[in-house]
Simulated scan of single mutants.
Amino acid sequence: MASCQSAKPTFSKRGETYKSAREIAEEKRQARKQARMAARSGGKGKVASKDRTSRTNVPNARRLDENVATVIQTARSYTGTPYKWGGTTRVGMDCSGLLCTSFQSINVNLPRTSEEQSRFGKAVKPRELKEGDLVFFGANKYNREITHVGMVTEVNNDNEVKFIHASTSLGVIENNLYSDYWQKIFIKAVRPFDD
């Protein structure tokens, strides 16, 4: 967890170059694409149909990217963990620590603060939100300084977008982005993964 404490990217091996979440996700996406193509060319019709069937069992009739699903599952495993400023463990964690720790499950080192995380990825309009997108908030409706972050976990319709975050009063919890409270302090959203 030590890498979460620094805003500077850390590398797991000496001499290894830094890769963004986009680059890592793209490499994995390409590997899966090649595996699918190899399976199809092998003449196994069952493989392709089995793949199509599995996609229909996922919310919104689409299969979540494996990286996104892993990060969301990791974040949800901390549900109920109490809030602790600067925390990154089950003893306690803050909002940016939750995301930093969750992204480590796919070997991606997010910056440590919510303000720095707001620059990690491309901007997304609220109506285009997807699972895995990061959402950022201010302290109140008059403050445009980013002080809080969460991650989208479910997009059910235009009126319900769930996100997970570390609340100062309730710890790690999921809320609806479109509730009045969160809409008043919402500032922006970014997508750390490429489409």
Score class of each variant (00 low, 15 high):
Glu115Cys: 06
Ala31Glu: 15
Asn107Arg: 08
Thr113Gln: 15
Glu16Cys: 01
Arg119Leu: 09
Thr81Asp: 06
Thr153Leu: 04
Ile164Gly: 01
Pro126His: 07
Thr56Ser: 12
Tyr78Met: 05
Asp94Cys: 10
Ser54Lys: 15
Lys33Trp: 14
Glu154Phe: 11
Gln73Asn: 15
Ile173Ser: 04
Lys28Asp: 05
Ala189Cys: 05
Trp182Ile: 05
Thr56Asn: 10
Gly43His: 09
Val108Arg: 07
Leu177Thr: 03
Lys122Asp: 08
Ile24Pro: 06
Asn175Trp: 01
Arg22Gln: 12
Ala48Phe: 14
Ser167Asp: 13
Asn159Phe: 07
Asn140Tyr: 03
Leu177Ser: 01
Asp51His: 11
Val172Trp: 01
Cys95Ile: 04
Leu99Gly: 11
Ile72Trp: 07
Gln30Asp: 13
Leu110Asn: 01
Gln34Cys: 04
Ser169Met: 09
Thr153Ile: 07
Val108His: 07
Glu26Ala: 07
Lys84Gly: 08
Gly132Lys: 00
Lys184His: 07
Ala139Tyr: 00
Ile106Ala: 10
Lys84Ile: 08
Val58His: 13
Pro82Cys: 09
Asn175Gly: 05
Lys50Leu: 14
Gly43Trp: 08
Ser96Cys: 13
Ser96Met: 11
Ser169Ile: 14
Arg52Met: 13
Ile173Glu: 04
Leu134Lys: 02
Arg127Leu: 06
Asn143Tyr: 02
Tyr178Leu: 06
Thr81Trp: 03
Lys130Asp: 00
Met37Thr: 00
Gly80Ile: 09
Gly80Arg: 10
Thr74Asn: 12
Val71Ser: 07
Lys50Thr: 15
Ser169Cys: 07
Pro9Leu: 00
Arg29Leu: 13
Ser105Leu: 08
Ile185Val: 14
Lys8Gln: 11
Trp182Cys: 00
Arg127Asn: 03
Gly87Asp: 06
Asp195Thr: 02
Val108Ala: 12
Cys100Val: 05
Ala38Lys: 14
Ser118Glu: 05
Ala166Lys: 06
Ala21Ser: 12
Arg52Gln: 13
Ser20Lys: 08
Ser3Leu: 10
Asn175Pro: 01
Glu160Cys: 04
Trp85Arg: 13
Met151Val: 04
Ser167Glu: 07
Tyr83Met: 09
Leu134Tyr: 02
Ser118Trp: 05
Tyr83Glu: 09
Arg119Phe: 06
Pro59Asn: 11
Arg52Leu: 14
Gln117Pro: 12
Asp133Leu: 09
Trp85Thr: 11
Asn57Cys: 10
Arg36Pro: 02
Asp133Ile: 03
Thr79His: 02
Arg63Pro: 05
Ala39Phe: 11
Gly92Trp: 06
Trp85Lys: 11
Asn157Thr: 04
Met93Cys: 06
Gln73Gly: 14
Leu170Lys: 15
Arg112Ala: 11
Ala69Lys: 10
Thr53Cys: 12
Val91Glu: 14
Tyr178His: 09
Asp65Ile: 05
Phe103Met: 12
Glu66Ala: 15
Gln104Lys: 15
Asp195Pro: 05
Lys141Gln: 14
Asp65Cys: 10
Gln183Tyr: 00
Gly15Trp: 15
Ser167Gly: 08
Asn159Ala: 00
Ser54Trp: 10
